[in-house]
Nucleic acid binder design. Sequence first.
DNA 1: GTGAAAGCGCTAACAT
DNA 2: ATGTTAGCGCTTTCAC
Lengths: 331, 331
Amino acid sequence: MVTIADVAEAANVSISTVSYAMSGKRKISRETQERIARAIAELGYRPHASARALASRSTSIIGLQAPLRPGVDVHVVMEVVTGVATGARGHGYDILLLTSDDSTGLERAASGSMVDALVVMDVESDDQRLGFLGSLDRPCVLVGLPADPGGLACVDFDFEAAGRLAVEHFAEQGHRRVALLGSPQEVLARHTSYADRLTRGFTEAAAEAGVEVSVHPCPSTPDASEVVDDVFAAHPDVTAMLIHNEEALPHLLARLSERGQRVPDEVAVLALCPPNVARTLRIPVDTIDIPAEEIGIAAADVVWEMISEGAPPSIRLIPPTLTARSAAPGA
Amino acid sequence: MVTIADVAEAANVSISTVSYAMSGKRKISRETQERIARAIAELGYRPHASARALASRSTSIIGLQAPLRPGVDVHVVMEVVTGVATGARGHGYDILLLTSDDSTGLERAASGSMVDALVVMDVESDDQRLGFLGSLDRPCVLVGLPADPGGLACVDFDFEAAGRLAVEHFAEQGHRRVALLGSPQEVLARHTSYADRLTRGFTEAAAEAGVEVSVHPCPSTPDASEVVDDVFAAHPDVTAMLIHNEEALPHLLARLSERGQRVPDEVAVLALCPPNVARTLRIPVDTIDIPAEEIGIAAADVVWEMISEGAPPSIRLIPPTLTARSAAPGA
DNA sequence: GTGAAAGCGCTAACAT
DNA sequence: ATGTTAGCGCTTTCAC
């Protein structure tokens, strides 16, 4: 294995000069700089990550907890993960992936000094991990927004605003009764942060706009079709729906079509999903895009600011925007 | 920060005794063992991962390259990743996630001694990374099977056998012309290992069984529907299809239904996908399951064998099995 | 059954 | 502008 000492010898300089030449923390003459660069290239030298981490007390690794819990949107998770990895790389960081959904992995990574910071996904409104995370000395960013962030940094799409936006959009179009077909029961049951916030924005905006609403969990299976029937059985006057369930989406649209309810003329539909997912639908539907990768990148950016500038924990919510995709305008 | 020296002091033993007590590489008296355990618990000691790695020359981290390339099945990728992480954890390893699709991340991780081994996904038949991977001193496992593995370990589902199984199954049922509706063009164009192998097994078995076949790339969008029309335009006598494209699957089935071709009575369908995905279909379809998580676990197992026992690079292909899900049997 | 001490390869004072 | 050196926190020879 080639060490920094080998490079120093080959370049006829001291070890520290090589170190400083690499970090740029000291001014090195043009000439020595080049001799060192040549030595590094010729020897194929790679600094030993652990040695560097031990001496510098920083690993250039960010821990990312991305548990694949039942009912989550795989596309969204995957894109957020990709975003975090991409963003982190842009700042010179790598990702240690933690897939268990408890605190053990976080504990191992943080307390074992494996990572410089943590990014935590699938946050619940009253998340069990918050206490532990708050007690850490390392920066920590939640992808989500718990009821009480307790001084932790939070990054997410603004699901509450998205709920409001949908209702206001429908209200403007003259709809008087709107339904939210959302996440699977299991996701709602554990009070996943995004689901809670979407529901809140949706119902609050409805109260303000004088629009009648109902909220319906949707399984991510063909059984979702039945929810459509349930909606109209309970509220025959529903004329618009906000759908937030990537996997159920095609089944819901198919069921509407089977019932002879044309989208968007008879039933206005707004899908809350990543643009990629919207493009895989047979029927073009207006959407509120979930910018999943952007969320991940933003999380990495916040981590970076906290690490490099000691920035205080901030809360960053990406505002929703509506994208028209359907042919005809709603009723 | 609590160090091993603190523990040693608290337990009234030497540093090395603490180290040996933790690793179990030396016999420690019952009494000292307990004193040390108590000190560790009381102080909340966590060994410093980098210090340990530097001294032991092993990080207990496995690098996992999981690029999210266009056209790949997100569910499958995610499940394999979960499997690798789960399997690795079972052996005391964590995962460093690399999402770029070139060799730079692999290089950084391996040459920088960040990882003890590598697992590489999305392997192509003539993969560019093979040369570099073969030159490494660390164990490396491919998830996939290139044309020439060149001494590297390979783990995957046996897509070739799956192609054969499908054809033989259809032939047994009396079908004389079968179509393979597969991965998107982009996946085939880069000769992704699994797509190549599936096609080979499919066409070879067909030649042997005297069954006529055709192979059709499928976009992962609603446009996939057109492929169904193309298939029957080119070969009106097609009575069975093997579908290997998770995202296209619903659109293909829907198009068949629109054309009035009943599944499985008029057109026998075999879907090649994870069981989870099959369960999200509106029409139950017979499947050949892709045991995605199992593949990941197997990859982690092979890595473990190579690391711990110095096992030679092996090739492990998980055989396909057919699962009946549709109501009626085929023609 | 236990200690002492020499590294592991690097960073960052403290030198000049 | 460059060199010397004391650690970083652990593992693992030696030594008893």
